[in-house]
């Protein structure tokens, strides 16, 4: 019985941790580092190109270029190793396990190369997302003529996702503050699950309605609008020139 109660407690804690994780996921962009002040219109194609050459690298000589590019970008990003590793380790480990049987089909070298490719691709995405405010990415997409509707959907998702997880966190916190220790967790959790989820969706819906009203009252006309960030030309050019050099060297090695 005690074992079952502990299991129920784990479910409750997991839900709370997940809500808190996603709530913070959307607001943990680092805002003051070298990469932040580079123009997102340049950063996106640069990171995309680096991911492409990573994926197309067929041996260690080729992958060394995106690897060095990543090490440089990571060094100037100022992201803490703890935050970075927490974001990349799971997918890298998963891909390693998935590709592991290839030791018997191809070679161990292939397994390492594959894992390295996954690790580097994820790392580029993590560095990009942690150094670029989400709305800067949207502005860059607008520049590249991505349809307004799609940008608006992304912007709304970003705004509402935060509201959703914040609301869930609040409800779980309120639930915890009123938990009666003498009661059995299992019974309590079952009751709470049905009493939390329904009201949660109603609350999020109503909250979304109020945010929408606030947007309309402030002149929202169905288009994504956001202020512009300060951009430093030196940072932008350095990243652009650096990326071009890496890509040219990678092509040279690839061809010869």
């Amino acid at each position: 019985m005690l074992h079952r109660e502990r299991k129920m407690e784990i479910v409750s804690k997991t839900l709370k941790t997940a809500a808190s994780y996603f709530e913070n996921f959307f607001i943990q962009e680092k805002v003051d580092n070298f990469l932040t002040y580079a123009d997102a219109r340049v950063k996106i194609p640069v990171f995309f190109s680096l991911i492409v050459i990573t994926v197309l690298s067929q041996n260690f000589w080729e992958i060394i270029f995106p690897l060095f590019a990543f090490l440089f970008l990571y060094a100037v990003s100022g992201i803490s190793p703890k935050v970075y590793l927490r974001k990349v380790y799971l997918i890298t480990l998963f891909s390693f396990i998935v590709v592991l049987p290839h030791i018997f089909i191809t070679s161990f070298e292939y397994v390492i190369l594959f894992t390295l490719r996954v690790y580097l691709s994820i790392s580029f995405l993590v560095v990009l997302s942690l150094t670029t405010p989400f709305f800067e990415i949207l502005r860059a997409l607008k520049f590249y003529r991505v349809p307004d509707t799609l940008i608006l959907v992304l912007a709304s998702t970003y705004t509402y996702a935060y509201i959703l997880f914040k609301e869930l966190s609040r409800m779980l916190l309120a639930r915890e503050s009123r938990k009666i220790p003498q009661r059995k967790y299992s019974k309590e959790w079952k009751e709470s699950a049905k009493n939390v989820l329904g009201p949660f969706f109603v609350r999020v819906y109503e909250k979304g309605e109020r945010v929408n009203m606030a947007m309309i009252s402030r002149g929202f006309k169905g288009k994504f609008i956001c202020g512009e960030m300060e951009i430093k030309k030196f940072n932008t050019y350095l990243i652009m020139v650096g990326a071009i050099c890496v890509i040219v060297m990678w092509i040279t090695v690839k061809l010869y």
């Binding site: 989400f134 002149g219 202020g227």
Partner: peptide, 16 residues
């Protein structure tokens, strides 16, 4: 308040 920064909040209405 639904924008990423306070400055964005202040710019939102006039820009609209």
């Amino acid at each position: 308040l639904f924008n990423p920064t306070v400055m964005d909040e202040l710019l939102y209405t006039p820009r609209n």
